[in-house]
């Protein structure tokens, strides 16, 4: 009964969200799957998404991203907690929510036997786009993704990048307030990825808020205004890419490739005042420092002293992946 009471209380919150700067408000959202054993896929997650931003949802496989997206796209009901999309509440105003969101799923759901035009026309009708405007809208979107000359060709003749762009604009036919993109560039070559990124940025300028899930850190970093990290059903961090990087106390990472190594040198380097930590990985010495260029000469002098041949040197700022590893203690691939 407590759950029901909470829901009615939150209804007002959703209604008041109409003119707020947040388009999505999630509070204590939890989803538990009860099959043979209980799995908490989403565990008391709360956050908001601002109008007009590109919001990245990152995390390894099984982190709960997909479940969260499925709840927000009305495909699944949460076990507890509330989620508002604009002034509508998930689980109550699903019909209205479906008319203001656009969804581009991870696995292609284009009808490859049908032409590009027919695919858009079909969804135009499902999405209830004004019939008098639909034709013009389809041509406008085909133009946008540079597929005008292939409008009548079956989608099966298209490249992966072309299909992806077509599928993204298909979700955009009805000018949604909110666009969900699930792994939009998975399996695409670098050239196509860049095109899809441009496409996403362009759609974002049309006042559409975009929620993007991805595995690719570079993609999130390049596109997203803010990024949420998820791991094991929990939200572990949410901020702009730049701020997230500041989470790591280390300023920079010094990576030195070597031929052979002496244990003594590691101790010597570790004892340096500016050095935070030293790690050896695959013939590479990884040294966390506050400022790489300042420490480098000292480190090199030490290596010289132990007559260790240096094969390569790089100084890099921490990537989002480093941030994730720092926050969770596990890598992305390890899940």
């Amino acid at each position: 009964m407590a759950e029901v009471n909470q829901k009615t209380a939150d209804q007002d919150t959703c209604a008041s969200a109409k003119d707020s700067p947040d388009i999505i408000r999630i509070q204590d959202l939890t989803k538990i799957f009860r099959n043979k054993q209980e799995v908490t896929a989403v565990d008391h997650v709360s956050f908001t998404v601002r109008r007009g931003e590109i919001f990245g949802l990152l995390g390894p496989n099984g982190a709960g991203k997909s479940t969260l997206i499925r709840i927000l796209t009305t495909l699944m009901q949460p076990t507890s907690g509330t989620a508002c999309v604009d002034q509508y509440i998930i689980g109550k105003d699903d019909g209205t929510i479906r008319s203001i969101i656009g969804v581009c799923p991870q696995n292609s759901t284009l009808d490859i036997e049908l032409s590009a035009y027919d695919n858009l026309d079909f969804y135009g009708n499902l999405l209830n786009v004004d019939e008098t405007l639909l034709q013009d809208r389809i041509w406008e979107l085909l133009e946008m993704v540079d597929l005008t000359d292939r409008a009548a060709m079956p989608v099966k003749t298209f490249s992966g990048g072309m299909r992806r762009k077509l599928e993204i604009v298909r979700a955009f036919l009805h000018h949604p307030l909110l666009l969900f993109l699930d792994e939009p560039t998975i399996g695409l070559d670098p050239e196509s990825r860049r095109e899809v990124w441009q496409q996403i940025s362009r759609l974002n300028t049309e006042k559409t808020t975009i929620i993007l899930t991805t595995h690719y850190m570079d993609e999130a970093e390049k596109l997203c205004d803010r990024i949420a990290f998820m791991n094991r059903g929990k939200l572990i961090a949410l901020d702009t890419p730049d701020n997230l990087k500041k989470v790591i106390p280390t300023g920079e990472l010094l990576e030195i490739g070597f031929g052979h190594l002496d244990e003594g040198v590691i101790t010597a380097i570790r004892d340096l005042a500016e050095v935070r930590s030293v790690e050896v990985q695959d013939q590479i010495l990884k040294i966390s420092v506050s400022s790489g260029s300042k420490v480098l000469p000292v480190v090199l002098a030490n290596l010289e002293r132990f007559s260790i041949p240096v094969l390569s040197i790089s100084i890099r700022a921490p990537s989002l992946e480093d941030v994730f590893i720092y926050l969770t203690g596990t890598g992305f691939e390890a899940g």
């Binding site: 796209t73 009305t74 495909l75 019909g95 479906r98 008319s99 969101i101 969804v103 799923p105 696995n107 759901t109 009808d111 969804y123 499902l126 999405l127 209830n128």
Partner: peptide, 13 residues
């Protein structure tokens, strides 16, 4: 299986 039906379900149809 391909998720095409699910695609219908996120539209207001």
């Amino acid at each position: 299986e391909m998720g095409i039906i699910e695609g219908y379900l996120v539209t207001p149809v």
